[in-house]
Simulated assay, not measured.
Amino acid sequence: MAPVDGIDNEIKSSALELIGNTPIVALDRIHPGPGRILAKCEFMNPGASVKCRSSLHMIRKAKEFGELQPGQPVVEITSGNQGCGLAVVCSVLGHPLTVTMSKGNSVQRALHMEALGAKCVRVPQVEGTYGKVTNADVQALEEVCTKIVEDTKAFYVNQFSNKGNSEAHYMTTGPEIWRQTGQHVDVFLACVGTAGTFAGTTKYLKEKNPKLLSFVVEPAGSEPIKGEPIKKPLHLLQGSGYGWIPDLFNYDDMDGTVSITDEEAVKYMELIGKKEGLYVGYTSGANVAAAVKLLESGRVPKDSWIVTTLSDTGLKYTPVPEELTK
């Protein structure tokens, strides 16, 4: 049957074309003003997180430069979101994917990756507890991942040091935000794990608006970027605040930091659901909490438009612990 004029143009060729171009939404019910909080809905990517963008870009670059051959296995360490993004990309492009993930990360992420054809090796924790993953836990993942690479000759993505990670956000997230806001962005902020989202997006936005202020969101008690000693390595912000300064982070991109407690993250995660109708994860709650805190603190002009990310869906997590909801 011949395509109807115009209709075939709406058909995407694969899930890869669903990555990026996420909508941006005003959180006016949580913060009616002055100022405005605008959130990029990254949970609407096909892997349900912001990490789909870097997954696609890093794999495409590896193929382009001959680092990844057709059908070659891919390996990565993950807290879950990068693994889900890579699972989307690798399933479409025909690369077997193995990820190592701490048993402290939510089991929903492992189920998600495996449903997309990936193999998830869940590594016992060294010092963390379920829902709270530390630097030592991540180091354990790297040891297992290195052994897999040696045994299988797989391509190691290495999101923490792969410049394609931040480049993805310089090329897509930043330009989308600039266009969607009508070139009106006063402040950008984000939680930092690998620093890919923060570094790439901030670099682009500061090129467009040199007066833009950018803030790193860190879990209270685990604030190495702020320069504080690590007092609380166990926190709820999975995939961020590991207790070290990421390779992709550059202090020249940052104007300050905002500390957010577990309780603040949970509070705003719940408010985003109950007031804005969006079910998101802990880092999303932390990002919005930080935006509110900045507007109320006077650290930014009171009429600022603050842009942040709703990094992933709340469906990737176990229920909020009862003691944090009281």
Rank of each mutant, 00 (worst) to 15 (best):
K12A: 14
L234R: 11
Y242I: 09
E76V: 07
P175V: 06
N21V: 13
E207R: 14
R53G: 02
P23A: 11
K147G: 01
F249P: 00
V144M: 08
T201S: 08
P70M: 10
M101V: 09
I225Q: 02
Q82W: 08
V4M: 11
K61W: 11
V144H: 07
G6S: 11
P233Y: 07
K211C: 13
D262W: 06
V121N: 05
L294Y: 00
C41N: 12
T283A: 02
Q108C: 10
N165C: 03
P96A: 10
R179T: 08
Y170F: 15
L295E: 06
G239D: 01
K302F: 12
Q69A: 06
G66N: 12
Y251F: 15
L213E: 04
T152Q: 13
F43S: 03
Q159K: 04
D303S: 11
T309C: 13
M269C: 10
T194K: 11
I7P: 14
M171S: 10
D8L: 08
Y282H: 13
S14M: 13
G128H: 01
V288Y: 03
D255H: 14
V123R: 04
E207W: 14
T202Y: 10
R109N: 10
G104V: 09
P73G: 00
G174F: 03
I77W: 00
Q125T: 15
A15R: 12
Y204F: 15
T325H: 11
G200D: 09
A140P: 05
C120N: 03
Q69C: 13
P224L: 06
L93Q: 09
K132L: 06
P46R: 04
I7E: 05
G94L: 04
K12I: 14
N9Q: 12
Y282T: 08
D8F: 10
G281K: 07
T313N: 03
A190P: 04
L189F: 05
A289M: 02
G200F: 07
M171V: 10
L213N: 01
C191Y: 01
S14D: 11
G20H: 09
K267A: 03
R179F: 10
V138H: 01
S55L: 04
F65K: 13
S259D: 00
K275E: 05
A154Q: 03
V185K: 02
E114W: 03
G193L: 08
P233R: 03
L141F: 14
K51N: 07
A289H: 01
E17V: 01
A15L: 14
G80V: 09
T318A: 13
A199S: 15
L111K: 15
A48C: 09
H184M: 07
K153G: 09
N162V: 12
K293Q: 05
Q82H: 10
V307H: 04
S214C: 11
K51E: 02
P219V: 03
I225P: 00
R122Q: 14
Y317K: 04
Q139F: 15
V50S: 06
D151A: 15
M113R: 05
L38W: 14
